[in-house]
Computed example of a mutant assay.
Amino acid sequence: MGVLSQQQWKGVVDFAKAVDAGIVTSFATGVGTRDAAGVWTPDLAKRWLDFTHAAGGRIAAAEWMNEPTVAAMGGAPQGYDAAAYGRDFKIFHAFARQAAPDMLILGPGSVGESTGDWAVAAGYGSDVLLKARDLVAAVQPARVDGFSYHHYGAVSRRCISTGPRTQTTPEAALTEDWLGRTDRTLAFYRQVRNEFEPGKPFWNTETADAACGGNPWANTFLDTFRYLDQLGRLARQEVRVVAHNTLVASDYGLLNDKTLEPKPSYWAALLWRRLMGPTVLESGVPVQDGLHLYAHCLRGSPGGVALLAINNSRTRPTSISLPAGADRYTLSAEQLESPSVRLNGQELRLGSNDQLPDLQGSRIPSGPVELAPASITFLALAEAGNGNCR
């Protein structure tokens, strides 16, 4: 396992302060945090929190263990089971409430379970898996502030040893089955949440196209459809936070890990953040092949509405009708597996000194709007006059 130095962690704290972001993390749970009997102790956790606070940092939310579904991969002792997890989580819970009362406690942070037969946890082998329901049952009566889980619709090619059932292809990237997998993972964990933590918000604390570093096309515009469609779907289903894995590392990073140049999904994330406010509206259009339409209040514009319209058909145009004029932001690429993306026909790239370009929309009138095949369009209707957007 890697070791994070104090200087590296201070760099994380400094970065979070520079971009005004809260830190969401998990705690160390390996052998160095345990006593002779293998029971987790909070001694190192307290030292780590003290160092974080001294550096001017704050942990906004935390899971105790990263992906306890496969606890052995995180350094848990041999034979670790749900009962041991429950014992240790209760120790952590009591410690966290006292040492960091403002920190939200998330859990369980499980991964790989789904209502679909493609669930990636199957690739690890059922003999090593700790089921989310057993984990959550074992921690009772300790309560979390948010029900967290991880989602991957597949395992990357670099981990093909997990079996063919966990694999996917670029040809599947725009299909309804592939884009809908995030719903089926959430549906599985919803059952557990409803049984033990009814009403708690969901946090998707780790997700990307594929586990184990992502597939090669995660670097391209092709994966941007999944990226944005997932945000739209989950926002409608009580998911408060979606944390993409990663900002910069491996194929699924939003930035190139050698040049730090933005990849297509980075630009998509930036447009989402600037346009789609936290209030979710009903678009009135069911998800269908060729048109996935999501509606939010327009960020920073009282009464305004922002639409995200995804045409996931590779061959057919479609259209929607707007009740008012809008600023249009259409993302497209010459080739779907292109490492670059165009906004309203112009390639997006950093300027001198890595300055972000001016992301201007194109003004269009009310009425029909055509959506080209394999394109993604944001529409900002500042004069929509929506009474829910105040």
Rank of each mutant, 00 (worst) to 15 (best):
V3E: 05
L4A: 00
S5R: 02
Q7W: 03
Q8T: 02
K10W: 06
G11L: 02
V12P: 02
V13D: 11
D20F: 03
A21C: 11
G22V: 04
G22A: 08
G22H: 09
S26P: 01
S26W: 09
T29R: 12
G32W: 01
A36M: 06
A36S: 13
V39N: 09
P42C: 13
L44P: 14
R58P: 00
A60G: 07
E63Y: 06
E67M: 10
P68T: 12
T69Q: 12
A71E: 07
M73K: 12
G74R: 15
P77G: 07
Q78P: 09
A84M: 13
F89E: 06
F92T: 05
H93S: 11
R97N: 00
Q98N: 10
A99R: 04
A100G: 01
M103E: 01
L104H: 01
L106Y: 08
G107C: 05
G109D: 09
A119S: 11
V120H: 05
V120K: 04
A121N: 14
G125D: 04
S126G: 13
L129C: 09
K131I: 08
D134P: 08
A137S: 12
A138M: 15
V139K: 09
A142V: 04
F147T: 08
S148A: 14
Y149L: 14
V155C: 11
V155N: 10
S156C: 13
R158I: 13
G163M: 05
R165C: 02
R165G: 08
T169L: 12
T169I: 12
P170K: 14
A172Q: 12
A172L: 15
A173D: 15
G180H: 11
G180K: 10
G180M: 10
R184W: 15
T185R: 15
T185D: 15
R190S: 13
V192N: 05
V192Y: 06
R193Y: 13
K200P: 03
W203M: 15
A208V: 08
A218D: 15
N219L: 13
N219W: 15
N219H: 14
T220R: 13
T220P: 07
D229F: 06
Q237C: 06
V239R: 11
V242T: 13
H244G: 02
H244M: 07
N245S: 07
T246H: 05
D251Q: 15
D251C: 11
L255P: 02
N256W: 01
N256T: 00
T259M: 04
L260E: 09
P262M: 09
Y266T: 00
Y266G: 00
L270P: 01
L270H: 01
W272V: 00
R273G: 04
G277L: 05
G284A: 04
P286F: 09
V287A: 11
Q288W: 09
G290R: 08
H292P: 09
L293R: 09
C297N: 02
G300L: 04
P302A: 06
G303M: 07
A306T: 05
A306Y: 06
L307Y: 06
L308F: 13
I310G: 11
N311H: 10
R314N: 03
P317S: 11
D327V: 02
T330N: 03
A333D: 03
Q335T: 12
L336P: 06
S338W: 01
N344G: 02
E347L: 00
L350M: 06
L350R: 05
L350V: 01
N353A: 04
P357N: 04
E370C: 00
A374R: 07
S375D: 04
T377M: 07
L379I: 07
A382L: 03
E383N: 12
N388G: 01
C389T: 01
